[in-house]
């Protein structure tokens, strides 16, 4: 099984799948960011997720120190930054997989910084992982069905009485099939997920996350290690999430991808948010360029660097 199988599916697939061409989606949040100030911690018109004073240290290392961040509802927000910037740690803090030392995270106004991950999924916030977690020795369709929340048959007692959950089980099954169809994975439904290629695993993980019917989808490097054809398909699916009214946050390295699909970009470096802005403006931001290329990339190596110099100071010296 190769990834190429998906490319024709994108354009020639039957029914709803054909509608999923990346370019065909409207952007329901177009223009929302026009009045947002392009500075770290900027207030958004309608934030779904707000992080405030979130700090996480490992020993002496401050991995994350985010003063304030608001994520706009219904938009695609990209979280970028050089390696070791703390993006994945921040992701873990937002999704309950790790707890912040200080600060709060709120989802739709409710504090979630002490809420266990499985409860967050039930509240409509779902995540995927940088290292894809296909459940290898389960079939693709079982992977999908697992994602449905509020299943009556997941209770140890009710599970023993089939009639209590069989109707719901067939509903879940139908929903799984629909989603598999939308992601062009129907033909793999009964295969073990462990037999899927890397790209297919990314697809199944995203499709499985959608089974929870999330309000907010958090994708940790959804395009990592995926061939260019499938990347286009994945981009289309991410835009599809926005078209359905879901909010998306994703971590990404590839700037082309970021420019293509994101409405707003948040840049992290050394655990802090150093810039926020629209995809077009962010590439011109001096702090971002410094973070990626090194603060003193245009200076002679013999020049002594100021101890603990923050990006702000560098911004001044450069400007």
């Amino acid at each position: 099984m190769t990834d190429e199988a998906f490319t024709p599916g994108l354009t020639a697939g039957g029914g709803g799948a054909a509608a999923l061409r990346a370019t065909e989606y409207d952007n329901p949040v177009a223009g929302v960011f026009d009045d947002v100030e392009q500075v770290p911690g900027a207030a958004k018109p309608d934030p779904i997720l707000v992080a405030d004073g979130v700090v996480k240290t490992f020993g002496g290392l401050t991995a994350v120190d985010v003063a304030h961040l608001e994520i706009q509802r219904g938009a695609i927000t990209a979280l970028i930054g050089p390696n070791g910037a703390g993006k994945t740690t921040f992701f873990n803090l937002l999704t309950g997989f790790d707890r912040p030392d200080r600060g709060s995270v709120s989802l739709e106004g409710e504090d979630i910084s002490r809420v266990a991950p499985h409860r967050l999924a039930r509240r409509g916030m779902v995540r995927t992982f940088q290292l894809t977690k296909a459940l290898s020795r389960m079939t693709v369709v079982d992977n999908m069905k697992l994602g449905a929340t509020g299943q009556r048959g997941e209770s140890i007692w009710r599970s023993l009485l089939g009639p209590l959950w069989s109707a719901q089980e067939s509903e879940v099954g139908e929903r799984a099939e629909e989603l598999l169809d939308r992601f062009n994975m129907s033909h793999m439904a009964d295969e073990f997920a462990g037999t899927l290629s890397g790209g297919q695993r990314k697809l199944i993980e995203m499709a499985r996350a959608l089974m929870t019917d999330p309000k907010l989808v958090m994708l940790d490097e959804p395009m990592a290690g995926v061939n260019p054809a499938l990347t286009q398909s994945l981009l289309g699916h991410v835009k599809g999430l926005r078209a359905e009214g879901r909010s998306v946050i994703f971590v990404e390295h590839d700037m082309d991808v970021v420019r293509d699909i994101s409405d707003w970009v948040v840049v992290m470096a050394e655990g802090q948010i150093i810039a926020e802005g629209t995809p077009d403006s962010i590439g011109k931001n001096q702090a971002v360029v410094d973070a990626y290329l090194g603060q003193h990339h245009d200076q002679d190596l013999s020049v002594e660097s100021p101890a603990g110099g923050s990006s702000d100071e560098v911004g001044e010296s450069d400007g």
Binding site: T95, F97, P117, H118, V126, F129, L135, D142, L146
Partner: peptide, 15 residues
């Protein structure tokens, strides 16, 4: 079975 395969994936999906 999902927990056997990957506990974090199961937790992320609300289990």
């Amino acid at each position: 079975k999902a927990i056997r395969e990957d506990e974090d994936a199961a937790r992320a999906l609300g289990k």
